[in-house]
Computed example of a mutant assay.
Amino acid sequence: MTSFLLAPCFIDKLCVVIPMKSPSRSKQRLVGSLSDSSREKLSLTLFQNTLAFFKQHFPMLDVLVVSESLDVLSLAQSYETNTLFDDGSKGLNGALDFACDWVKQSGYDSQLIVPSDIALLDYQEIIDLMAAIHDAQVVIAVAKDGGTNALLTSPPDAIPFEYGCDSASAHRANALRNRLVCRSLHFANLALDIDHSEDLQVAVIRQPEQFKAWKQTSLPPVKEQYYA
């Protein structure tokens, strides 16, 4: 699988897209669990972790960050990524449509959308995700709540983007409607984005040094299924 990833013909035609809200508007579902400043710090920490991960483990891949925040775009540029300003008026799906147009016009054949708030990005999971494009045009990494935590499409606009509630099913349905082969994959780490207080608790347990600053001792214990 590693040899597939490193093939120049694949590397040159794939763009990683990372959408990122303004930190002040991020993590709204953690209101009541974290202060405004803590939520903003958490959002930026996760974003920087994502940028650092791809720069360290996949330096051969081009990355595009799309955001409404000039500060976010400036930070992304310090990691040598491409950047695209979107005013946020059309939400996440609109921002991704805008990014997809940029990706296509820039000559890429494939696109990998990765959210900015995955608690722990795992090298082998990303390798396995990208390898799945061998026999599918749409590859979905399913989130713990049925959302989409990574979406690999070839061509980039193979399906309409429908991020939101139960988006993994929506993306799969769009692929089938377009008569495309779709694979839905379930990864232990890639399934965990931090949207709720329980997510943050799991992140603290899995990576205590990285997330100890946000540990909330007053929250109820995490249910066993949260580890699945």
Rank of each mutant, 00 (worst) to 15 (best):
T148W: 04
P23F: 04
I194T: 07
D117M: 04
A99R: 03
E198C: 14
P19C: 08
G32S: 06
K90P: 13
R172T: 12
V202A: 09
R25P: 04
Q28D: 10
S78A: 10
L96R: 09
P221D: 12
S89H: 12
L46W: 01
F98V: 07
L112W: 00
C165L: 11
L6S: 05
C9R: 15
L30P: 01
L46S: 01
K144S: 08
D86V: 08
R25I: 12
Q201P: 07
L185P: 10
Q124I: 01
D157N: 11
D135A: 10
Q210Y: 12
P19T: 06
N174Q: 15
S33F: 07
H171K: 07
L96C: 08
F47C: 02
L152H: 06
V31W: 06
D109A: 14
Q210L: 11
P23R: 08
S74Q: 15
R177H: 14
E224G: 10
R172F: 04
Q77Y: 09
L190G: 03
S167E: 08
D166R: 15
Q210M: 05
S38Y: 06
V139N: 03
E224V: 14
A7N: 15
D87N: 15
L30M: 05
Q105V: 14
L112S: 02
W102M: 09
P115I: 01
L219G: 07
I127L: 02
I194P: 00
L75S: 06
F211C: 00
S184I: 10
D195H: 14
S218C: 12
Y226F: 11
K21H: 08
N82E: 13
V72H: 03
K223S: 11
N189G: 06
S197A: 13
F187G: 00
Q111K: 06
